[in-house]
Simulated assay, not measured.
Amino acid sequence: MNLLPGILVFNCLLISVFGQNSITSRLDKLDINYVLSTGRILDNYLKCIMDKGPCTVEGRELKGAIPEAIIRGCKKCSEPTKKIVKKSANYIIKNRPGVWTKLKKHFDPEEKYLEDFNKFLTS
């Protein structure tokens, strides 16, 4: 099985997302208040980012922004995206702690970035 095409596509995706000066996307226009207040929609986004369900375009972009947010404190995120990441993470931490535990294990299993991410959330 040749993995080269998959690796090339993955690298192109990384370059397109992280090679920019800032990540601006459909996320900038996402009505996060509506998503957080509508359990079914929030659950669909959570399934997407946890690889448990299909993704919308916005879901894929959110999923791609999470490593940037966790590892780099969202330094390349646009201001609207930073607000969305902060608001959604703080909401999940407060209202769905079990989900937060699963998200941490999924994206930062060794908790190498947890302290810095918490600082980003309160900045």
Rank of each mutant, 00 (worst) to 15 (best):
Leu42Gln: 06
Leu42Gly: 01
Asn44Val: 01
Asn44His: 12
Tyr45Met: 09
Lys47Arg: 15
Lys47Pro: 00
Cys48Gln: 02
Met50Ser: 07
Met50Gln: 12
Met50Ala: 01
Lys52Glu: 15
Pro54Arg: 14
Pro54Asn: 11
Cys55Thr: 03
Val57Ile: 13
Glu58Thr: 12
Arg60Pro: 00
Leu62Trp: 08
Lys63Met: 11
Ala65Ser: 13
Ile66Arg: 01
Ile66Met: 06
Pro67Ser: 02
Pro67Ala: 06
Glu68Pro: 00
Ala69Cys: 08
Ala69Thr: 04
Ile71Val: 15
Arg72Val: 01
Lys76Asn: 13
Lys76Gly: 04
Lys76Gln: 13
Cys77Ala: 12
Cys77Glu: 06
Ser78Ala: 15
Glu79Trp: 08
Glu79Gly: 02
Pro80Ser: 11
Thr81Glu: 04
Lys82Ile: 03
Ile84Lys: 00
Val85Asp: 00
Lys86Phe: 01
Lys87Asn: 08
Lys87Ala: 06
Ser88Glu: 06
Ser88Met: 07
Tyr91Ile: 08
Ile92Phe: 03
Ile92Ala: 04
Ile93Met: 09
Lys94Tyr: 09
Lys94His: 14
Asn95Val: 11
Arg96Ala: 14
Pro97His: 10
Gly98Ser: 11
Val99Thr: 14
Trp100Ala: 14
Thr101Asp: 14
Thr101Asn: 12
Leu103Ile: 13
Leu103Trp: 02
Lys104Ala: 10
His106Tyr: 14
Phe107Gln: 01
Phe107Lys: 04
Phe107Gly: 07
Phe107Trp: 07
Asp108Cys: 10
